[in-house]
């Protein structure tokens, strides 16, 4: 009987060691317990928790989601329990799972981001943080920092001083020059980048002649944005040296491969978790199969092998 070759699925992102390259995107896997029975946090290389802010946030008025052609709009508005409840109630159960926890944070001011980063710096069970400077659904903070290189740099620099572990910055595609933002963030001390967050979008109810979403506009995700995400990843890959985590419409292992070949060291899946909670397992087995067929023993060797 022919022995099935084991593929080494481990990846390393700026010193952060992951058992596999598939990460749950912020806001799509809750705090890990919600999908119990369908998908386990331990299936992922890492879980990025839902954006946490210093104080609880109620989020935006409904409707908050809407399906569009091959995609979906969301306008959750960073609804979250706030840092204290996150630490006391949500984190303990997640820590017990066999995965790496990355905390995603947002604030209204640089001071709020720094305060959160300083608090997270002391939590040994969280080895990395993802800075959300790209949420399109809140008025203050978030995207205000992610659309201007100087603001993105100032925020990254301030958080870097307070945070000694792996610092990942999540970029917005809603800019004219994502590579410029990426370079500004890199030179301010970011260890890695996640890209892309959702694209601004909108849908109209023609019967009511009103926007479908309660917040009027939302963020577009899903297969519809995959080509945009790949293009942005391609641009940034040629502009910075730090590792990249690719996301945007990844539904299966073929999509994940496109991102890795283009330059992603790891990938995040978001909308796919809603559609198919077993996507993580399906993608991992598909990636291993591709490696076997192509005589690749270590998945990390796929990153950036795009021939142009």
């Amino acid at each position: 009987m022919k022995k099935v070759k084991t593929i080494d699925l481990r990846v390393s992102i700026a010193g952060l060691e992951l058992k596999n390259p598939v990460i749950a995107a912020s806001g799509t896997f809750g705090y890990g317990a919600e999908y119990s029975g369908l998908a386990e946090p331990g299936d992922f290389g890492a879980i990025i928790t839902k954006t946490v802010t210093l104080e609880p946030r109620p989020g935006n008025r409904p409707p908050r989601i809407c399906e569009t052609s091959c995609g979906m709009l969301n306008s959750i508005g960073l609804a979250n329990v706030g840092f204290a409840v996150f630490r006391e109630d949500k984190l303990p159960a997640l820590i017990k799972k066999n995965t790496v926890i990355i905390a995603n944070i947002a604030g209204n001011t640089i001071e709020e981001y720094v305060e959160l980063a300083a608090r997270l710096n002391k939590i040994s069970d969280i080895p990395a943080l993802e800075l959300n400077i790209s949420c399109p659904n809140v008025k203050l903070g978030g995207i205000a920092f992610g659309t201007d290189p100087a603001s993105a740099a100032a925020l990254t620099k301030a958080v870097r001083r307070a945070y000694k572990k792996t610092l990942i910055v999540k970029l917005s595609p809603n800019v004219s020059d994502i590579a410029g933002i990426a370079r500004a963030v890199e030179s301010s001390g970011a260890d890695a980048l996640s890209l892309i967050n959702t694209l601004y979008g909108m849908a109209v109810d023609i019967k009511k002649q009103r926007p479908v979403l309660g917040n009027i506009t939302g963020g577009l995700s899903g297969p519809a944005i995959k080509p945009v995400a790949l293009y942005n990843l391609y641009k940034v890959h040629h502009s910075v040296k730090i590792p990249l985590i690719g996301l945007g419409g990844i539904m299966d292992h073929r999509d994940a491969l496109e991102f890795m070949i283009t330059g992603a060291a790891a990938v995040q899946i978001g909308t796919a978790n809603f559609v198919n909670p077993s996507a993580v397992k399906d993608i991992l087995s598909g990636l291993a199969g591709y490696c076997r067929e192509n005589d690749i023993t270590r998945i990390k060797n796929l990153t950036g092998i795009l021939k142009c």
Binding site: G27, T28, G30, E34, L38, G59, R64, I76, T271, F274
Partner: peptide, 10 residues
């Protein structure tokens, strides 16, 4: 979207 309380969409 998710149906399980994760996304806060509904």
């Amino acid at each position: 979207a998710c149906g399980v309380g994760a996304c806060q969409g509904c």
